[in-house]
């Protein structure tokens, strides 16, 4: 018996999932061009092929949920609700960027949507996500923290340490492991003695399962199940999202370690192509609807690029601002309540 992929998804949400994936795809495609044109510099890691993961997870996230991502973070930021203008301006190193041009592609931050970066040290975001979850647990909310990371992080000590701590303390953190099969250029089996990631997570007493990360409905359903449990105090969940990046690791990567045939076979599973076809087949997406959506998305990306182009650079006079807090720190979470002082 096969489950209907549209189970529990109404037409507007089905369309929204497609649109989210398409927004990320088109954004990334433009980034390639802009990188070639030297408008974007530094490292650039693209999410093309993996859009179903961010879109499927974000479908269940609330504004008060926190997200920690990796250096391949454009998709997660856009899916969490960071404006495309602010993300693009960040890549252009402009002061209107979501990190004022200080972080670039790998370090997108946005307090308003609780997007905590953009961590460029593999595994470095994991303990931070556990801490964000601890704060929610402490405050008695049902908000969660989501940590997106690649399967390469599973080899890091920080992964093992965090899995143990999160499980031990029953923290509401979703470990979203995007298994795209290669840690930069090293295939999983070339670096891991045990390649069953679910078994590894299980060994920490954590609920875990694998999901087809090329299927946005599957990611959405799995996330929904995980978050429902987590919001009710069920503790952390590990999801292995089996996915694939269609492009190289970064713009510097000559992609020598993968067969072209392997890449081509994964491209046959393009999450956008498949979801679009399903929606058209079910009549949810009428004739011409996709092209119309695509034109709107292209217009949004074009607008973001124009905004980034026109924006100013941060004045050099601000170089040393915020090495330490200066009282203007615009983060409600860290300074919501005054510290008790005076009478000790």
């Amino acid at each position: 018996m096969s489950i209907d992929p549209l189970e529990g998804i109404d037409a507007p949400e089905a369309v929204a999932l497609l649109e989210m994936m398409l927004r990320i795809r088109r954004f990334e495609e433009h980034c390639v061009e802009l990188y070639s044109a030297a408008k974007i510099r530094g490292f650039l890691h693209l999410y093309v092929g993996e859009e179903a993961v961010a879109a499927g997870i974000a479908a269940h996230l609330r504004p008060d949920d926190a997200v920690v991502a990796t250096y391949r973070d454009h998709g997660h930021a856009i899916a969490k609700g960071v404006g495309m203008r602010a993300v693009m301006a960040e890549m252009f190193a402009k002061v209107t960027g979501c990190s004022r041009g200080r972080g670039g592609s790998m370090h997108l931050f946005d307090a308003a949507t609780r997007f905590y970066g953009g961590n460029a040290i593999v595994g470095g975001g994991l303990p931070v996500a556990a801490g964000l979850a601890l704060a929610e647990q402490w405050n008695g909310t049902d908000a969660v923290a989501v940590c997106c990371f690649g399967e390469g992080a599973v080899a890091e000590g920080e992964w093992h340490e965090t899995m143990n701590l999160a499980s031990l303390w029953n923290l509401p953190v979703l470990f979203a492991c995007e298994n795209n099969l290669y840690a930069m250029g090293t295939a999983l089996a070339r670096s891991e003695a045990e390649v069953d990631l679910v078994a590894k997570a299980n060994s920490y007493g954590m609920t875990a399962w694998s999901v087809d990360g090329m299927d946005v409905a599957a990611v959405r359903a799995a996330t929904g199940r995980a978050l429902t449990s987590m919001r009710a105090g069920g503790g952390p969940v590990f999801l292995e999202l089996r996915t694939y990046r269609f492009r190289a690791h970064s713009m510097y990567d000559p992609d020598r370690y993968r067969d072209k045939s392997e890449i081509e076979s994964w491209k046959q599973r393009d999450p956008i192509t498949h979801w679009r076809a399903l929606l058209e087949e079910r009549g949810i997406l009428g004739e011409g609807a996709f092209d119309e959506m695509d034109r709107a998305v292209e217009a949004e990306v074009d607008d973001a690029i124009a905004f980034a182009e026109e924006s100013e650079l941060e004045p050099v006079s601000e170089l040393t601002r915020w090495v330490y807090s200066d009282g203007s720190t615009a983060v409600a979470s860290a300074s919501a309540a005054p510290v008790k002082g005076g009478a000790l």
């Binding site: 994991l126 303990p127 931070v128 801490g131 964000l132 143990n164 979470s333």
Partner: peptide, 13 residues
């Protein structure tokens, strides 16, 4: 893990 969790908890309020 616990230093990083401290960082996250601090950012979480």
């Amino acid at each position: 893990a616990f230093v990083g969790a401290g960082i996250g908890a601090a950012m979480g309020g």
